[in-house]
């Protein structure tokens, strides 16, 4: 899988780098299927006696097992996988609540996973310099409906229909790190009878 290109024009959107192990007392990883290979890449290079400091959380795609096996085989102190980003991020919060100074957090995968991991790290008091992100996989966006505040995952179309209030939302190039989401604003509020073509644009 090739590294993703993120448009540089969106000033509120974070830029992403490449994961690299830095000195730390504990190393926490959170990845989804598209980010798993980043975790494997950097953890494989660690000496065996450091594996005690490594903790991995993983969100596989449904039915996939090969990457779970590979991640498990790394021999981390703790390895757990969850069916949803929300549950994995919840577990990350539990782990980080016991974390000490010198903790490093590594996030890899789609923007929704990375963004929610960053927000959780901030919430738990991690300095932003202790968090690394690598974006991989789909450019699908996580979108907050500005009208009813519903979070919509994996948005690939422009516009997108809010599943809750059913308004047709234009996905603005405006990103909130706190919410880990783009802003969705009704596209045809001025003239609700206007027909708008829905196109797949965030792939």
């Amino acid at each position: 899988m090739s590294e993703s290109i993120i448009e540089e024009s969106i000033l509120s959107r974070p830029t992403y780098g490449t994961l690299k192990i830095v000195p730390g007392l504990a190393h926490y990883f959170l990845a989804d299927a598209s980010g798993a290979e980043c975790v494997i890449r950097v953890v494989q290079e660690l000496p065996r006696d450091m594996m005690d400091k490594v903790h991995i959380l993983y969100v596989p795609t449904p039915g996939e097992a090969a990457l779970i096996t590979s991640l498990y085989a790394l021999g981390a102190n703790r390895f757990e996988h969850f069916p949803t980003i929300e549950e994995a991020v919840g577990k990350l919060g539990e782990w980080l609540s016991d974390a000490k100074m010198g903790t490093q957090l590594y996030l890899a995968g789609t923007e929704g996973l990375v963004g929610q991991g960053v927000a959780k790290g901030e919430e738990c008091g991690l300095d932003h310099t202790a968090v690394q992100c690598e974006h991989r996989g789909s450019l699908a966006r996580r979108v907050q409906c500005v009208h009813c505040k519903t979070m919509i995952e994996d948005v690939t179309t422009q516009p997108v229909k809010c599943p809750s209030c059913e308004l047709l939302l234009f996905v603005r190039d405006h990103y909130s790190r706190r919410l880990a989401a783009f802003q969705g604003v009704c596209i045809n509020a001025e003239d609700p009878t206007e027909e708008i073509e829905i196109k797949e644009v965030f792939k």
Binding site: L11, S12, V146, R172, D173, H174, Y175, S176, R178, Q183
Partner: peptide, 22 residues
Amino acid sequence: WSLDFDVGMNFFEWHAPVPLAH
């Protein structure tokens, strides 16, 4: 503009949607 969306942003982030000025 939405306070609920923008709260916690820095100066450049909350002005991101403004055209030309950047």
